[in-house]
Amino acid sequence: MSAMTADVPVLEFRNASKHFALSRDRVVRALDGIDLVLEAGQTIGVVGESGCGKTTLSKLALMLQRPTGGEVLFRDMEVGAFGREDWRRFRTSVQAVFQDPWSSLNPRMRVIDIIAEPLVASSSMPRVEREARAARLMDDVGLPRAFLSRFPHELSGGQRQRVAIARALSIEPRLIVLDEPVSSLDVSIRSQVINLLKDLQEQRGYGYLLIGHDLATVAYISHRIAVMYLGRIVEINTSAELISDPKHPYTQGLLAAHLADHPAQRGRNVPLGGEVPSPLSPPPGCHFHTRCPKAMEICSRVEPMSISSGAGLVACHLYGQAG
């Protein structure tokens, strides 16, 4: 394997936007001015309600879609400037694990071929070597090698998700986009997969972009968390600081929605009211002001700038002067 260069970020969003034009005057601003840096060996978790742009963000990270404004960089290279060789390098360095292991594995391929497929596509590795590699990957993800000759329908959900992870690891990627990797799994299987993802990162230094909705799980896996609301990052901080000292009222609302870990804590939180407004006509100023319990007059007029707060950034007028 080529040497890891730790100083270059694996993935970087620079003021990146993605707007979808539905008609001349109807534009969905799925992403708006995203700044995000993912270093090698790190995990950034992205949280927010449905419709906040998490999935669009992951599509941009996978270069499945191009930004309509700003830049997305993979290891300091701007996607727009990718040549043939850059694309090849990109595709051999980035992988994804999706939520549903029932639809993300080809039902007509055996496990061995599923895991080795990225190697076929990206290298001229001889078949014998590929298959030996697939067998080692089965060990890595804790599946018996006997499963190599099975088809996906012969495996349980947790086993399938391990196959999906093994496939992602086959080419020793630098970046893995994890889109809700455990939400479709049974509770007793989730912790197996979560521990596996953490161990693999520690051993091999993968960068993870983790899309999730359960704050406790995302915080457990991630070094930093970006909180998204209607296409914007409203707060980003280390997991520990974001959980213990959330600044943005939306982050506070998400934390309040987290249910009790013990019956003694029940009913202690007032959940955030309302729902995410349509991204077709987001509220002016701070998008969140319509649901914000601390909204001020300025919030409906002026979009707040991101200012630094502890180890992170927050975009909220409450901290405008103090920052």
Partner: peptide, 9 residues
Amino acid sequence: DATIQAQFL
């Protein structure tokens, strides 16, 4: 969503 779940509960 977690927020909507909390509201529903």
